[in-house]
């Protein structure tokens, strides 16, 4: 079980969190003028990397805040966490 550092509450057990999929998926500004292909890409296409992955988590049983996590999908190492709206920090490889 992961130990996830909530940027607001500090490290807590994974059972307190909900997973929110890949981070930084931008919703098209003008859905009406977005092509079907681009819309489908926004809706359905997600990365599934072996290694570093930026993803969203929510501290569901805590402060209910969404935030971003950079996690290595092989080692489960959490490289960094950062708040919504913040740019992803540069992380050493």
């Amino acid at each position: 079980m992961l130990r996830i550092p909530c940027p607001y509450c500090g490290p807590r057990d994974e059972t307190e969190f909900a997973y929110g999929g890949e981070a930084h998926i931008a919703r098209p500004q003008n859905p009406a003028t977005t092509t079907d292909a681009d819309w489908a890409d926004f809706l359905f296409m997600r990365k599934n990397p072996k290694g570093r992955h930026r993803e969203r988590w929510m501290h569901a049983r805590g402060c209910r805040q969404w935030f971003n996590v950079e996690r290595d999908t092989v080692t489960h190492q959490i490289v960094t966490v950062y708040r919504m709206g913040e740019p992803p920090p540069e992380t050493p490889r």
Binding site: C9, R12, T15, E16, R61, G62, C63
Partner: peptide, 10 residues
């Protein structure tokens, strides 16, 4: 204080 869980209750 903390929001968390006890057994299966929030």
């Amino acid at each position: 204080c903390a929001q968390s869980q006890l057994a299966r209750a929030q």
